[in-house]
Structure formats: C-alpha cells, structure tokens
Design a protein around this nucleic acid. Structure first.
Lengths: 232, 232
DNA sequence: AATATAAAAGTAAAAATTACTTTTAAAACA
DNA sequence: TGTTTTAAAAGTAATTTTTACTTTTATATT
C-alpha cells in the first residue's frame, strides 16, 4: 500500500471495478461480447468483461488491460460511459464500477483467447440475461454509442479497412435499430467528406457492384453538430 | 467494515471522491460556486466542492450530501459528468473522483451556509485557477451542460418560477457563450411548447413589458432530437 | 441479346434555419 | 394630450436540410 496523506481516511476506501461493453460487427449484425464470470458470486453466469482497477492505473488503463488479456487486441477504441455505485448492485459486496464501451472489428483478429474464457458474441436481440445491473449497462452503452454515432461517422474500428456505403448504412441501421433510406444516407455521408472512394468494387452484393470506400485520416475536431437532425 | 465476499481483494480498494461543479444564474450571468479547500494538500486554495464517497451510499448520494451540507438545498438537479482516475491527479494520493454538475437558483435561497465555508460565486470569465485537475472538470461539466441544453430546455432549476423569454435566451447565451437571435430563439422555444405564458408582465426591461412564462409540468421523454441544428 | 440486381444519381415537396424588417404596447417625456 | 422611445413580439423571405420518392446505370446471369 502506498503512503498517502489520506491514509487517515482508510475506512473510506472502496472497491472499484471496470466493466466493458464490447461491440463488434459481423455478418451485418452488431454484436456484443459477453463472458462467463470467473469468480463468485454468480460464477459461470453471463457477464460483461470486468476487472478491478489497480492502484497505479487509470480506469481506462484497467479497461485496456482486461481487454488485452482476453482478446489480445492493442489499440481498441474505448469511451467512458457512466459510473454505477449502488451499494446493492453487486450481491458480493459494495463495488463501484466505471463502465466503458469498446469497438472492435471481429473479422480482423478475433483472438482464440476469447474462446478460452467462455466468451460468446451475441446479437442485441438474442442477448442473454446478464448478472447484476449489466443489462442496464448495456442499454447505457448503446445510448452513448448512438450519441457518438450521431456526432461523427463511427466505423473506423468496427468496419474493415475497405467497405461499401451499404455496409456502413447497415451498421447504422443496427446501431439505431431502424432503417435509413439508402439514397438519403449515401447523400448525407458523402456530403460529410470523411470517406474516400477506392477504385475497387465489391461485386458480391449486386450485378453492378458497389465501390469500396475507406476513411480519410481523422482530423481532430471532426464534427461539432449532430449529423442527422430528426432522423436520430 | 462490512463483510464481503471480495475481502480477499482488500488491497485493491481505492479512495473514491465526488466533485461538484455548481452552476447558478444571477444578474444575467452564469456563475460557478467554488470553495476554499478544507484539508491538506492545497488547503485554502480554490477548489470544487468535493467529499469522500461513504461505504453505503451511491456517488450521487455523496454529491447530494456534500451539497446539502454546504448550501442547505434539498432537491438539486444533478447530472453525472465523468470519472477521473489518473493516479497522479491528486498530489495527496491516488483518488478516483466521480464528477457531477449541479444547477441551482442562486436567488432562491442561497444559504448563508455558503459563506461559512469560504465559498464564492464566480462568472466563467473570472474563474480562478483551481486545484488539481478541477479546471478540466469545469470544462467537461460545461460540455455536458451544453449537450443537455441542446436536447431539452434547461432552466427549470436555474431560473426563478416565472421568467421572460429574454431572460431564458440570456441564459442560453451564457451557456453557449454566443448570442442567439432574439426573434429566432423566441420562435424556436415557443414551438417546443414547454412554456406557458402568464398574464403578468415584467415591466423592468422595456416600456412595452415582456410576458412572464413558466415551465409546464415536465413530461418524461421530453425530447429525443437536438433542439437546434447548427446553432449549437 | 435480354434480364435482373442493387448501386448510384436525381428530383421535388416539406420542414427548419437564418437573417432580417415591421409592428406593437406601454412608459416617459414634451 | 400627443409624441417619443424602448424592447417585445410578430412577420417575412431566402437559404439550407430533410424526406420520400423515381430514374438511370453498370455488370453478372440467363
């Protein structure tokens, strides 16, 4: 234990964990990686990926650490969602948890490590009942993901390097659980000038083929206004 | 100390605090209540209102507790902002802090308790340098307040019961640090149908006088789309 | 060569935003 | 009493964005 001027407040110390809502995109479906919990209570039940926050790391460090351990992935996109602190939320004891969501490209290098931990990708519809308040955390992460997706074009991490507009639209359909109009979506996305068209076409979905696009290098303050007005 | 199945992880326990960015509105200015810190380190320097999170309360409970202790106010509007966890953020020791912002009506009952604690209202422009990362926390709270203000008409807590559209617009000018067009702002706000016009007029600002308005009772899912498109 | 497909482009009405101008109600002044 | 002054309130018209469509296109398959 490090020395600290606050040591007189020892009895105020708390258990702090992180929980990760891991989003991936595969076969035109937005999916979520859930795990079989390794410790009591509720050992073996479906749960978000979580872990203790160690003394000399940030909560984001902790999230990256547990993510790396289970997936082998290095530069995952992470966004802090919310902190949950109901003393009764975890029957094993009073634990404050800081929630993050992660976006990862399933196809890319979905490590076999995942299987070792009894993890499984689920679509949003077939998501099982999770331990504690984890289903609430999933809802909150989705809200945050939707908010972010309405302020910038998300997909850098969820999609492969090259992708069609149709595939990007499908991702948005999944995130918002609604159908975007193909023509209007294309017009909108292209007007934002964040994508660059490649010469190559994806011929697997139509006779005509659809051009592949890739993201232009990200320039910092990407957008400040919402992308869609009433559609989102 | 409560017994817990996690007791074997004792050494993982962490100091957890809350910090409150307290917004108020007075004399057509958005203000922020800052305090002279009561404990070492940095005792006596300007700081946000903060406190430890006790074992059997949520972080929001903790925020309400410290707010009540210092202002006497009961049903304050609170929104969780972000959790900061850099082990070096507080030179006194590694402390994870959960940030909230509070909205309070200064005129209403700005308790004299406030003075006892060496607290002071500051406008955003004349905000002093605060301890640790607290100036960053203020920026983050402002961002969150702006986000919220762009999804619903804020002011229920910051304004007195009755107020003019001009006063509400001035609040928005303050929050976004820009000038909204008076005519367009009025049109927009009234189209949202969240305000009810009273018969009484405020004669202090013009010969003609401006009608007072009050908020209609809040109906839950107030808005889902941003109120302004590119103006914000 | 004709057909079928989704991609891509195009269109026009409706809605929202923006930048203004005009009118109005009431106090203050002449 | 009538005129002036003030900000409130209403109004206007151009522009931009959204929405709901229709049409054209490129290419593989029949």
């Amino acid at each position: 234990m490090n020395m600290s001027i606050y040591d007189q407040y020892q009895e105020n110390k708390r258990f702090v964990s992180v929980d990760c809502v891991i989003f991936g995109y595969e076969q035109e479906k937005l999916k979520l990686l859930v795990f079989q919990r390794a410790i009591e209570p509720a050992k073996g039940e479906w749960s978000l990926l979580g872990g203790w926050v160690n003394a000399n790391e940030t909560t984001e460090d902790a999230a990256r650490r547990v993510l790396h351990k289970l997936t082998g992935l290095e530069d995952v996109y992470l966004e802090q969602v919310h902190t949950f602190s109901d003393p009764k939320r975890d029957p094993g004891g009073s634990v404050i948890t800081v929630e993050y969501y992660a976006l990862i490209n399933i196809d890319e290098k979905a490590s076999n490590l995942i299987e070792d931990y009894g993890a499984k990708w689920h679509t949003l519809e077939e998501l099982p009942s999770l331990i504690f308040d984890h289903n609430v955390l999933v809802e909150k992460a989705l809200e945050k993901l939707r908010l972010r997706s309405s302020y910038e074009i998300i997909g850098r991490k969820l999609l492969p390097k090259k992708f069609t507009i149709t595939r990007l639209r499908n991702l948005y359909d999944q995130i918002f659980q609604r159908k975007f109009d193909p023509g209007n979506f294309r017009k909108k996305i292209l007007s934002l000038k964040v994508l660059e068209r490649l010469e190559e076409k994806d011929m697997s979905e139509s006779k005509k083929g659809a051009f592949y696009f890739k993201f232009k290098p990200k320039n910092e303050s990407e957008f400040t206004d919402p992308i869609f007005k009433r559609s989102i």
